[in-house]
Amino acid sequence: MQDREGMILSKAVYADMSRCIACHACEVACEKAHGAAKIFVDVVRDRVSVPVSCCQCEKATCVMVCYPGALSQDNGSITFDSDRCTGCDLCVLACPFGAVQLDTAGVRRCDLCPDREVPACVVTCPSQALIWDDVENIAREIRKRAAVKMGRSLASGRVL
């Protein structure tokens, strides 16, 4: 499995699970924008909600198995050409995260909403659990949020 740190994409969607409230707004927004949802939210052990969608792997196995060349990767970004798709299902079977689906409309995987300034799932997210930014900025944001949390635990320690 490729970790996301190896991505060469300039921008990405990052999910901060500590903020996700399992409201499914991203799914419905995605469905409205694309006809079918390409992001999937599910709750683990009644306590943590985890959105899963295409994480734009640097070494994308879905692209590797796509023999007709419907999925292609250029400069990190993965594109889909429905005219070339045969519906073989191999990309679905080749995704390590189970984030690719196939239906009559073709391959369903996140395309980061190329027509929008910010992907629909990110704009709509009520709790700002989804972040759309430069990869470097995301890393910085994660560190910032982690620092706040650490500070908080110290602060709550003082309360008692």
């Binding site: 699970m17 999937f40 599910d42 683990v44 052990r45 306590r47 943590v48 985890v50 899963v52 995704c95 390590p96 995260f97 189970g98 984030a99």
Partner: peptide, 10 residues
């Protein structure tokens, strides 16, 4: 695969 990814992430 989605579940495993979720469990791990959670």
């Amino acid at each position: 695969r989605r579940s495993v990814e979720r469990e791990r992430a959670a």
